[in-house]
């Protein structure tokens, strides 16, 4: 059976999802404060890395890199509610792209699995 990443469409799915996902993030007052002062082109590249990981694709994320990469955001107040919002936005992005509910749940579970590292707990 095809992997989740293959079912979603691999790198093409990431490229199709990234603009929709990042637009929703920037428009969402719950989380957009964390993205105010970052370069958009660099963010788009980072979001692609995140989506690849969440889609079950190849990635080199480690618990340590997740922790280090979010430490400064935790210091600025990043908490469970923000992670919830990102997972919700991820889900609405995928449903907009016509992804099946079961696959969306699998993506959400992968994103959920890094919550502790992201929040440095």
């Amino acid at each position: 059976m095809a992997s989740l990443y293959e079912r979603l469409g691999g790198a093409n799915a990431v490229n199709a999802a990234v603009d929709i996902f990042y637009r929703k993030v920037l428009a969402d007052d719950r989380v957009n404060g964390f993205f105010d002062d970052v370069d958009m082109d660099r963010q788009i590249a980072k979001q692609k890395g995140f989506l690849t990981m969440a889609f079950g694709g190849p990635n080199s994320y480690t618990g340590k890199s997740m922790r280090d990469g979010h430490k400064h955001l935790v210091a600025r107040g990043l908490n469970d509610a923000h992670v919830d919002a990102i997972i919700e936005i991820l889900g609405s992005t995928l449903s907009e792209l016509g992804v099946a509910a079961a696959d969306i749940a699998e993506v959400a579970a992968i994103a959920e699995s890094v919550r502790k590292d992201v929040l440095n707990r």
Binding site: A11, V14, A45, K46, K48, G49, T52, G57, P58, N59, S60
Partner: peptide, 11 residues
């Protein structure tokens, strides 16, 4: 410099 090794992250 590299990261994803799958043609996505552009590192």
């Amino acid at each position: 410099p590299h990261s994803c090794r799958s043609g996505v992250c552009q590192s």
